[in-house]
């Protein structure tokens, strides 16, 4: 196990994709100290910014003690191992990760789990915008794995979602699941506007309040229960909407009946 402790409160953005179990694997502390990072426009060594220690424990592979919200790309593309961050994490945490586990005991900034392929990303606090969403101009999106956020999630999460599961214990921001085509999202509390806009497939479950369903969703049925993943289901009853008609889509939007009496007007179409 490698422990990283920031030597200071970072002011400039720090690019540290080298903080990755696959990169650390087989390297001594002396080698890890030499790894390249960027702080603002200056190239530095990892050892310039962090106190780096090794302990014999096998897991987790990397522990970061302290707030590193300016440190970006931690665990980018990681395939195995486990990172625990005791503090807040910077942008692009675990982007394109293909395996292993990241746990943040704090908040995560934007683009966490962007284009994730596999593995587990668990954020105990809040997540910023673009959780699991792709880079600008790309339609890749998250294709597998699981993200759990215990707090709230910012805007534009799970854009172009193509697979995997996202569980949000708190609230979600607007445009959740924009243009998603597969995969499952469960929002245990309340959900922002325009959820599922332009979705063509997949499943979004809102257990809390959803003020308004987009006009381009059409009601299909009322269901008592919906499966989230193997061994996990949400209990309703739920209104089931199909959409987005603007994309001639066939996505499913489940909205809690009990928490959303304002949607009862849709019942006349059933």
């Amino acid at each position: 196990m490698i422990t990283l402790t920031p030597l200071k409160q970072f002011r400039f953005p720090v690019m540290a994709e080298c903080i990755n179990p696959d990169v650390f694997q087989g390297k001594s502390v002396d080698e890890i100290v030499q790894l390249t990072v960027w702080e603002g426009n200056k190239q530095k060594k990892l050892g310039d910014l962090f106190k780096i220690e090794q302990t014999p424990a096998e897991t987790p592979s990397i522990v970061i003690n302290g707030n590193v919200e300016e440190v970006r790309r931690i665990g980018s593309g990681m395939k195995s191992g486990e990172i625990v961050i005791n503090g807040n994490a910077g942008m692009h945490l675990g982007e394109k990760m293909a395996g292993g586990k990241i746990i943040v005991n704090g908040d995560a900034e934007g683009w966490a789990g962007s284009d994730m392929k596999n593995g587990l990303l668990e954020i105990m606090g809040n997540a910023g915008p673009y959780l699991a969403s792709p880079y600008r101009g790309s339609s890749t999106g998250m294709r597998g794995g699981k993200i759990v956020v215990h707090g709230n999630v910012g805007t534009d999460a799970a854009v172009f979602l193509k697979g995997g599961t996202i569980k949000i214990i708190g609230d979600a921001g607007p445009f959740m699941g924009f243009r998603m085509c597969d995969g499952t999202i469960h929002i245990e509390k309340n959900c922002g506007t325009r959820v599922g806009a332009c979705m063509t497939g997949g499943k979004i479950v809102v257990s809390g309040v959803l003020e308004e369903v987009l006009p381009t969703f059409t009601i299909d049925s009322v269901k008592a229960k919906v499966k989230i993943e193997e061994g996990d289901s949400a209990t309703g009853p739920f209104y089931v909407f199909i959409g987005d008609l603007a994309e001639s889509g066939n996505g499913k939007l489940y909205v809690s009946k009990a928490n959303n009496p304002q949607l009862s007007t849709y019942e006349k179409y059933l």
Binding site: R194, C198, P215, A246
Partner: peptide, 22 residues
């Protein structure tokens, strides 16, 4: 504006809407 435009899109594609006004 978003809802209005989205509804127009669905109408251009000849879909029927469940709502009376947007």
């Amino acid at each position: 504006d978003y809802e209005l435009m989205l509804a127009i899109r669905a109408l251009v594609k000849d879909h029927e809407l469940d709502v009376d006004q947007v």
